Amino acid sequence: MTKGVAVVTGASSGIGRASAVRLAADGYDVVLAARRVDKLEQIAAECGGRAVGCDVTSAEDVAALARAAGGDVSLLVNNAGGAFGLEPVECAELDKWRAMYETNVVGTVAVTKALLPALRAGSGGTIITITSIAADAAYEKGAGYCGVKAAERYASDALRLELNGEPIRVCDIAPGMVKSEGFSLVRFDGDQAKADAVYEGVQEPLTEEDVAECVSWVAGLPQHVNIDRLTVKPVAQAASFKVHRGPLA
């Protein structure tokens, strides 16, 4: 007996990988979705899940993911996305802004839309979207990422209102600083020095497994309990723009 089918997007690394592994340990039949099929298949083999190659910006891929997930899905974890670039508005690289919007917002909505019939099929479904504390307030050089994460959050909030009266929970998990595999490296186009500088001096930033623990907790609550938003930050971080670097007194 399993807890049902759980679909995790962006599952080839980072928070998605950690969440898929944790949910498999919790007893879900996990469908791991991501573009990097080679890594995905390795993780799926390790945790006993099913790998489905999927670019969330591709309508064909999203439709194939829905077919692979089947007609009854208990849990959807919308995690695919990321930050591309960190520059002032006057220097904005608009192609990166468009790519962020397509993956974080349009991709999340596309997957959610495609899987809603399967989420409705059982006695109750859960949709968890991994947003960010970047959606809480703007910070310098972060306008693009803050904007798309806010849009993703509002899509989740609107969906919760629209599904009111149905047994489907809609939850937003908003992590702060996570020392996650590849996140900052992608943001800085592979510049390892810039990626490392993000975490320099910070005592114990969050790990991918910390966020996966939150996903597991939210999903495991009784079906009548909905966590609208769960904000989780390391102790060293007070806000997206205020991080203590050095020993904690």
Rank of each mutant, 00 (worst) to 15 (best):
M1D: 11
V5M: 10
V7G: 07
S13P: 06
R22D: 00
A25L: 07
G27E: 04
D29G: 02
D29V: 04
V31A: 01
D38N: 12
I43Q: 03
A44K: 01
G49L: 00
A51R: 08
D55I: 09
T57G: 01
A59M: 12
L65K: 10
A66W: 11
R67S: 14
A68F: 05
V77G: 08
V77P: 03
N79L: 00
A80T: 00
F84Q: 13
P88R: 08
V89M: 09
E90T: 08
E90F: 00
E93C: 05
L94T: 14
L94S: 12
K96C: 11
W97Q: 00
M100W: 12
V105K: 12
T108H: 13
V109A: 15
V109D: 12
A110G: 10
A118W: 05
G122I: 00
G122W: 09
S123C: 05
G124L: 02
G125H: 07
S132R: 02
A134P: 02
A134W: 00
D136Y: 05
A137Q: 15
E140A: 13
K141E: 13
G144W: 02
V148Q: 11
V148R: 10
K149L: 04
A151Y: 11
A151I: 11
A155E: 13
S156W: 02
A158F: 07
L159Y: 08
L161C: 12
P167K: 13
I168K: 09
I168G: 09
R169T: 04
G182H: 03
D191R: 06
Q192P: 01
A195L: 08
Y199P: 01
G201M: 03
V202Y: 13
Q203G: 02
P205W: 12
E208C: 14
D210M: 09
D210A: 03
D210E: 06
A212N: 02
C214G: 06
V215E: 04
W217G: 05
V218S: 05
V218Q: 09
V218P: 02
A219Y: 04
G220Q: 01
L221W: 06
L221N: 11
Q223A: 15
D228M: 13
L230K: 03
T231I: 15
V232D: 03
K233V: 09
A236K: 07
A239F: 02
S240E: 13
R245S: 10
P247C: 06
L248R: 14
A249C: 08
